[in-house]
């Protein structure tokens, strides 16, 4: 089959494009596909990447709208002091420059994380051992306390009593570990 664009080289890329439910078969040679922008260097993360910048841009949108008032944009620049990446650059490339960016951009990241991770903004998984054994316990304690409050609100007192006991034993655990640390 020949490439539908140049009609000269053989088509080596075959794919379907669906726009508003209309499916279109596309057959191109590598060269034409590249020219038409169907291929990118970052084969692997091409579509996701584009999608991401789309997701992030809602914030920079507001910036461009308000660019008329210069005073506002001048104070708006958020930048990571360690690697120099600005928040605007971050929304454009969709990647952080270093670990410190997370702290530098702070709460501005919550809406992004919420979109990408189904509403979640806080980690709930493995923790490096060097963070100290009690981070696990502290995290669990926090969760149990929230759970307890919820149960009390629901007036599920029997279950709440069980949760309360678990909280006590966690607190004891935390206490004794801290004690160990002091020795």
């Amino acid at each position: 089959m020949d490439c539908q664009e140049c009609q000269q080289r053989p088509a080596t890329l075959h794919f379907s494009q669906v726009i508003n439910g209309n499916k279109k078969e596309i057959h191109l040679c590598e060269k034409c596909a590249q020219e038409k922008g169907y291929m990118s260097q970052y084969n692997e993360s091409f579509s996701l990447h584009n999608l991401l910048s789309g997701l992030f841009n809602f914030d920079s949108y507001q910036l461009t709208e308000s660019q008329n008032s210069n005073a506002y944009t001048a104070t708006q620049k958020v930048q990571c002091e360690k690697c120099g990446l600005t928040y605007n650059e971050f929304t454009r490339i969709g990647k952080f420059g270093c670990a410190h960016c997370y702290e530098a951009f702070g709460e501005k990241l919550n809406p992004i994380f919420r979109r990408v991770h189904s509403g979640n903004t806080i980690h709930d998984g493995k923790v490096p051992k060097r963070m100290g054994g009690n981070l696990h316990v502290r995290k669990q304690l926090e969760k149990e306390r929230q759970h307890l409050q919820q149960l009390i609100n629901e007036e599920a007192f029997e279950e709440a009593a069980q949760v309360r006991d678990r909280i006590r034993s966690l607190e004891q655990q935390l206490h004794s570990e801290q004690g160990d640390g002091d020795q």
Binding site: L48, L52, F96, A99, Y102, H123, R130
Partner: peptide, 25 residues
Amino acid sequence: LEEKINFAFDEKRGYLTSCPTNVGT
């Protein structure tokens, strides 16, 4: 690996990664 490497980690956000789609775990 962790025995020899200090991984970038934050109590709130978890393991810190270059792409926000990987952060956390």
